[in-house]
Amino acid sequence: MANKSPEPTGMHSPEISDEDIFAAMKEIPGYLDITPGDFKEVYHLAWRHARERLLRAAKAREIMTREVAKVKADTPLKDVAVLMAQRAVSGVPVVDDANRVVGVISEKDFLRSMSAGGITSFMGVVAQCLQEKGCKALGIRKGKAADLMSTPAVTVAEDTQVLEIIKLFKEKGINRVPVLDTQGRLSGIVSRGDLLNLATFRGGGAL
């Protein structure tokens, strides 16, 4: 099969053996005028078309998580961290009183503020803590969400195509994107996990 990029990982058709096809052909009564090898080729190509059709057709609205963990600009960072830990998410949108997204705060923003030299990995921070006998996390204790959040927030509309969202993730290096309704208010969030569910046809019930 030809390589086609850009392509998200984990989306190749399940490996199918000549024996699988042979067994399937035996189950169908009558002579099938096709070799197992040809069928395999058709199968792989058809799978790719099906996947592209689903990705192209799917909109943010259909795959987004609606129960969004979110914070306000003046939420203490301590509470932000607690919320993110409780909900087991790696980032939350920051909204104003009208539920409009003003920024996004993520693990990366925390890590960056907790380390010197722009380290944004957990192990990077651990390494620094161990080397310098002290953790810089305490320095942001009094901070608020507004101090760390990334602005302006990258957002999408409810009818943005999933393929566009995948491109956005790659281009901006982000892991989630808040979804806005037509009035510009937060209505959901699409994370890499949501995309993975679609890519493997889970959750959508197609497989």
Partner: peptide, 13 residues
């Protein structure tokens, strides 16, 4: 060649 021959059909067939 790259693959194998399709299966034999049933007696009824």
């Amino acid at each position: 060649g790259t693959t194998k021959s399709p299966p034999r059909v049933s007696l009824a067939e």
